[in-house]
Amino acid sequence: MARTRTSTRRSVWLLTVVLAIAGLTSAGAVTTTASAAEPIHITGTVTDNGGLPVAGAEVQAVVYCSCEGFHTAGETQTAEDGAYDLVIPPITESYFDHNDFLVHIDAPAGDHAPEWYDNGVSVFRATSIHVPDGRTATGKDVQLAPGSHITGTVTGPRGAPLAGAVVVADFADPNDGGWADTGFPTRTADDGTYDLGPLPASTYRLSFRAPGYSEQRYPTVVVVGEGETAAGRDVSFRPVRNLKRPAIVGKPVVGRKVSATSGSWDPQRVKRSYQWLVDGKPVAGATHASYRPRVRDLGKKLRFRVIARAPGHPAATATSRGKTIRTATPTATTRIGVRPAR
């Protein structure tokens, strides 16, 4: 199965709010100015779960802005011995938390789970590092856990693989008791397979998007442990299919309410909307399961159309056979003559 590494650095940038105000770049990074103040340093070593140094790991510090969002304050990479020295130039803008930083570590070259210092799966679980101006915070060591993976295949109509579908794993967010707005994204390969990972061990909710289809979610949450792979999380985007077409019940008669059945569909749980047609033209407001033909409908063909929708599936339409609208059959009456009494 082709593997595309999940872009965990994107989870940092997705949190960045691009603001057109002085002191911010268009990429959302903190702009610093020449100052007599000394830069801040955060130093440490990044190792794997066996204690071996991780070279080339990307280390990034973000700072919170009261004007909303997190912004990049500095970034670096680890050396061959796993050591890093994250240099953060002086920050002068008052709307930033100048001395409190959240640090993200990712090692693209290995199968290591990314993390927010210290052992955080998201920015909301990160441990803030407080550093006074011009000082150095030492010993901020990180041991990266083995990466976890979620894998599966995304298919379309008739089981054909869907290449380029977007798959996102959102993690449980304790900040509000719900789910994080940003997660770990990837795309399916040419054969429709995907590999979300390496990921931190956590509980995830999967969502899938593909051009021409509505968003679909995996029916259950996915719990994946450290270094584990949750395989077989497959999803199929397929059109809704009509198995039995709608049908008008009885004969349509002017002035009498006529009803219709909506047919049967695959999948069974679809949301139905209705439209009555007279001589092929939609009748304004006739969007319920019954209709009362009008005098001007006399002699015309009445049909009942159903539009069925289901999450993750393109909508489908089915229309009943037409029936001619008639007048009510007159009731035969017998005239009885009564002779007047003599």
Results as ranks from 00 to 15, higher is better:
K271R: 15
R187I: 08
A284I: 02
V17P: 00
A284S: 15
P146H: 08
S273N: 05
S128M: 08
T33W: 13
P246Y: 02
G227E: 05
L102Y: 15
I91L: 13
L24V: 10
P252E: 00
A172N: 06
V168K: 14
E93G: 09
R335I: 03
F184R: 04
R9W: 06
R245E: 08
P157Y: 03
G225S: 09
T333P: 00
L302Q: 05
V46Q: 04
I248R: 09
T16C: 07
E228R: 12
V46P: 05
I42P: 00
R335D: 06
R3K: 07
G152A: 12
V30T: 08
V17Y: 08
Q268A: 14
G147L: 01
G56I: 10
V142G: 01
F70T: 00
G23K: 13
A137C: 03
D97K: 10
S259E: 09
T331N: 03
A126C: 10
G255P: 06
A34E: 15
H313R: 15
V254S: 03
V131L: 05
C65T: 01
V223P: 02
D141T: 10
E75A: 10
Y204G: 03
V283I: 15
P89C: 08
P161T: 05
M1L: 14
A20P: 03
N99H: 14
D85V: 02
A37N: 15
D234K: 11
A55G: 04
A328E: 12
A109P: 00
V59K: 04
G69W: 09
S262P: 12
I129A: 00
R241P: 01
V258W: 14
T333D: 00
I325M: 12
F101L: 05
V46D: 00
T203L: 04
G280D: 14
V18H: 11
H71L: 15
V121P: 01
G285W: 14
S273T: 14
S128I: 15
V87T: 14
T136K: 02
T261D: 09
G183D: 00
T334I: 10
Y194M: 13
V54N: 01
V258A: 07
Q143N: 10
H149F: 10
V63I: 15
R125Y: 01
T6E: 06
I42N: 02
I21E: 13
R9Y: 01
A34N: 14
G139Y: 13
S7Y: 11
P200H: 11
G280L: 13
H313E: 09
H288W: 06
V222L: 03
N49G: 05
V278P: 07
S259V: 15
